[in-house]
Amino acid sequence: MTDFPGAPSGPSTGSRLRVLAAMSGGVDSAVAAARAAEAGHEVTGVHLALSSNPQSFRTGARGCCTLEDSRDARRAADVIGIPFYVWDLAERFREDVIDDFVAEYAAGRTPNPCLRCNEKIKFAALLDKAVALGFDAVCTGHYARIVDLPGGGRELHRAVDPAKDQSYVLGVLDAEQLAHSLFPLGDTTKEEIRVEAERRGLAVAKKPDSHDICFIADGDTQKFLAQHLGTAAGDIVDADGTKLGEHDGAYGFTIGQRKGLRIGRPAADGKPRYVLDISPVTNTVTVGPAEGLDVLGLTAIRPRWCGAAPVGEGRYTAQLRAHGEEVPVTAEAAGGELRVRLERPVRGIAPGQAVVLYDGTRVVGSATISATERRDTAKI
């Protein structure tokens, strides 16, 4: 295997690598590609066409992968002075990300499509193709750091900018994928990246960041799911099973949701009610008080480790949402599962979400939550 750069946050000038830079058309990936080229690597830019029928333009900060984004990526590659290609991965993206997203909601779970895209597209389909074509590494604009260990191997760490850290959605990467990954932006703040982009003459310097789910450009997840799953009337009930209202599809709700419940009668105590459970089998949505959302423990499946799997029970911190805070936990991997005890309750954690374990700033690994334990010890 080719020797990889020793700098913890991106390419170094030591070894000259053949690098495939994934360029979304945004400022982060453009600067990442520019830094890799400036470090002396042989860089080729590639834009992933992930939509079969891309829109011509973005709507503000919503969506991505439009024709406008492709053109922005090409212009950035021209300024950097690197070859540029567009690769059509729309069918793979539909199968591995969009279809998975719909199926998870249909099953009453809450998926993270960005995490799935990193696992299945950017660091599987793209990386596999890159390696097959003779590239040494894939470079992206993610905010995270890679630390090369003196004795060999690599570790994934949080970015220095906590507001932009994206290590949570990279927790699915295994040791082999990390060996072929470059994240040049991990030691930089977003403000510094925009200043650098302007200095480099990149037209995307002030382009808004993409938000929400990239394949739902208007941000209306419920409408998107209704188009794919249709309507299916069901009941909204309280914890005792008393019917409080009706819905058009259980998939339109998420654990912890408060607004849009369409409950006719107020709670006896006058307090707001939240979604506590979603049952696709009975097409029932259960609501109750906020205290019913307190999670004390969880079980997660399909663990993926950013290195060697941990042995025995250990103390870590866990992040349970893409922009959530860290929580002290005790965790143990056994029998293909990860069992986690939270040192303090956390509200609104749902099956389908990812739990990512950290040891300090180091990412230990990730797993998909399959069940949660509430205060009453009921598994949801």
Results as ranks from 00 to 15, higher is better:
Asp218Gly: 05
Leu127Ala: 09
Lys122Ile: 09
Lys206Gly: 04
Pro272Gln: 03
Glu291Cys: 06
Pro280Lys: 06
Ala300Lys: 09
Pro11His: 00
Leu20Tyr: 00
Arg258Val: 07
Leu182His: 06
Gly360Phe: 08
Leu89Arg: 03
Arg94Val: 06
Ser52Phe: 09
Val27His: 01
Val295Ile: 14
Gly108Ala: 08
Leu17Ser: 00
Ala175Gln: 13
Ser181Glu: 03
Arg92Pro: 01
Asp161Thr: 04
Val311His: 12
Ala226Phe: 06
Pro8Cys: 04
Thr242Met: 00
His157Lys: 06
His157Glu: 14
Leu296Met: 13
Gly6Thr: 03
Leu127Trp: 06
Ala334Arg: 14
Ala137Ser: 10
Gly288Pro: 04
Ala77Lys: 06
Gly307Trp: 12
Ala354Ser: 07
Ala33His: 01
Ala371Leu: 08
Thr66Gly: 11
Ile80His: 02
Asp269Ile: 13
Glu155Gly: 07
Val102Gln: 02
Arg109Pro: 01
Lys190Leu: 06
Lys379Met: 09
Gly25Asp: 02
Glu91His: 14
Pro11Ser: 08
Val138Gly: 10
Tyr316Ser: 04
Gly171Asn: 03
Ala106Cys: 10
Gly186Phe: 10
Thr377Asn: 14
Asp248Gly: 13
Leu17Glu: 05
Gly14Asn: 05
Asp269Lys: 00
Tyr316Gly: 06
Lys164Gly: 06
Pro310Trp: 14
Asn112Gln: 11
Val195Trp: 09
Lys206Thr: 14
Ala318His: 02
Ile216His: 04
Asp359Pro: 13
Val346Lys: 04
His142Thr: 01
Thr221Gly: 02
Ser210Phe: 04
Thr368Lys: 10
Gly256Ser: 04
Gly292Met: 02
Leu67Glu: 14
Gly365Asp: 00
Glu38Met: 02
Val43Gln: 07
Glu192Trp: 06
His47Tyr: 07
Ala354Phe: 11
Val86Tyr: 09
Lys243Val: 15
Cys114Pro: 04
Ala34Leu: 08
Glu343Asp: 15
Ile82Trp: 00
Tyr168Trp: 10
Gly260Cys: 01
Ser70Ile: 07
Ser70Ala: 15
Glu68Gln: 15
Tyr274Lys: 05
Leu173Trp: 05
Arg18Ala: 11
Ser29Leu: 12
Gln166Ile: 00
Asp220Leu: 08
Ala378Gly: 00
Thr284Ala: 08
Asp100Lys: 02
Val31Asp: 02
Asp100Ala: 13
Ala331Ile: 12
Arg339Ala: 09
Val311Gly: 00
Asp209Glu: 15
Ile80Arg: 03
Leu261Arg: 05
Leu133Glu: 14
Glu196Phe: 04
Thr330Asp: 12
Lys206Asp: 15
His47Asp: 05
Glu176Lys: 07
Asp128Thr: 12
Glu38Lys: 08
Ala34Val: 08
Thr242Leu: 03
Asp187Tyr: 03
Ala32Phe: 03
Phe224Ala: 01
Asp28Ala: 07
Ser181His: 07
Leu115Cys: 03
